Simulated assay, not measured.
Amino acid sequence: MRIGFVGLGKMGRPMAQRLVEAGYDLVVADSAPGATEGFTAADGFEDVDLLILMLPNSAVVEKVLDDLVPALRAGTLVADMSSSEPLRTRALAVRLAERGLRFVDAPVSGGVRGAVAGTLAVMTGGAEADLAAIRPVLDVLGRTVLHVGPVGSGHAAKALNNLVSAATLAVTVEALRVGAAFGIAPETMNAVLNSSSGRSNTSENKVAQFMLDGSFASGFALQLMAKDVRIAIDLARALEQRTELGDRAEEQWTRIAAEVTPQTDHTRMYELLGGPR
């Protein structure tokens, strides 16, 4: 299988590197200067069997495909591993099918460390036959590969997962801040959470590792988390589903995302939340 891989950012580059190390023949592309350095140069995507996209959002995915689709041969499988919008993903799949192209969505969770280690969680949406065809590729990238439904389901599941993650992170930070104001050291309060029913991925894998040590280096940007939260809430509204807590989380993350840089790590919410009323 020859693979085209577009998007060599913080997540895409280690994912592409793992595929090279697994023996796959890769054609890579990225708009950033020097991003493709270290990979074998190639002329184009005309003879790829699988095209993987690891891009910032649906708009960029659609723009890239507008440029690449004319070069792809009929039957090529396109896998969008970006954090895209589920309803736009479904519409995109229809347009690609009209051009004779197959499509699956396969977004990931697990951060840069997971991309480097090949321990990502991959949430897939699409036809079972198409997903079976690329399962060996996904197994190189992730420890868990879940087929969650038809096209668009992977992107929906990813956004909803990050809605839960963002809301949990925020309320954990608030609990740590209130505890500190009362005189409970954050380290102690986090130990309470981890030994009790308040335990979460945030308390186990982010507080001590990236917040309390001041490194804020999880590798996942705050603005990207805010984007995923907005995708989840937009989906809920399109489906006419109430999301009272989700709406509050979306308001909070969107407001703070507008005040930081694209490089700001999402764990810096520990500094950006809390304080006196």
Results as ranks from 00 to 15, higher is better:
E85K: 02
Q241I: 09
P70Q: 08
V112N: 03
E250P: 01
D25T: 12
A185W: 11
R99C: 13
N201P: 06
F39K: 01
E187M: 04
M81F: 08
V20N: 15
V148H: 09
V64E: 02
D228G: 07
F39G: 01
A191Y: 03
D139P: 12
S31L: 04
V171L: 07
A257E: 10
D213I: 06
A117V: 00
V145E: 05
L222R: 15
D43L: 15
V207W: 09
V145P: 01
D80R: 00
L53F: 00
A208S: 04
A93V: 15
L169T: 13
A249E: 12
E204S: 10
R135V: 13
A71R: 04
A42I: 12
A159M: 12
D130W: 09
F39N: 05
L245K: 09
E46F: 10
L224Y: 01
G274N: 08
V171D: 14
T76N: 02
V116W: 07
M211V: 06
L26P: 13
A157I: 08
M11N: 14
P150Y: 04
N201F: 10
S83C: 05
E85Q: 10
A232D: 15
V108Q: 00
A29G: 04
D49V: 05
G183C: 00
R102S: 15
V260E: 03
S153E: 13
R248P: 11
E250K: 02
L138K: 07
I134F: 04
L222K: 05
S109K: 00
Q17T: 02
P186Y: 13
M211L: 07
D234Y: 08
S109P: 04
D66K: 14
S165D: 14
T76G: 02
Q241W: 14
E204A: 02
K158E: 02
H155L: 07
A258R: 12
V61T: 12
L273I: 00
D247T: 10
W253V: 06
L160V: 10
V78N: 12
D25E: 13
R199P: 11
A181L: 10
V6N: 08
T254V: 06
T168E: 07
V173R: 10
E21K: 05
R73V: 15
S203E: 05
L120E: 00
A249Y: 02
D234A: 14
I184K: 14
L212K: 01
F216S: 03
A236K: 07
A117G: 05
E244S: 08
A175V: 12
A117H: 10
I184N: 09
L8R: 08
A97W: 03
E174Y: 01
V20K: 13
P262W: 11
A175T: 12
A29R: 06
G44I: 13
E37F: 03
M1K: 09
A22I: 02
A74C: 12
L77S: 03
A208H: 15
A221Y: 03
G75H: 14
S83D: 01
P86Q: 05
A226T: 11
L239K: 07
R268V: 04
E37N: 15
G12M: 09
G214D: 14
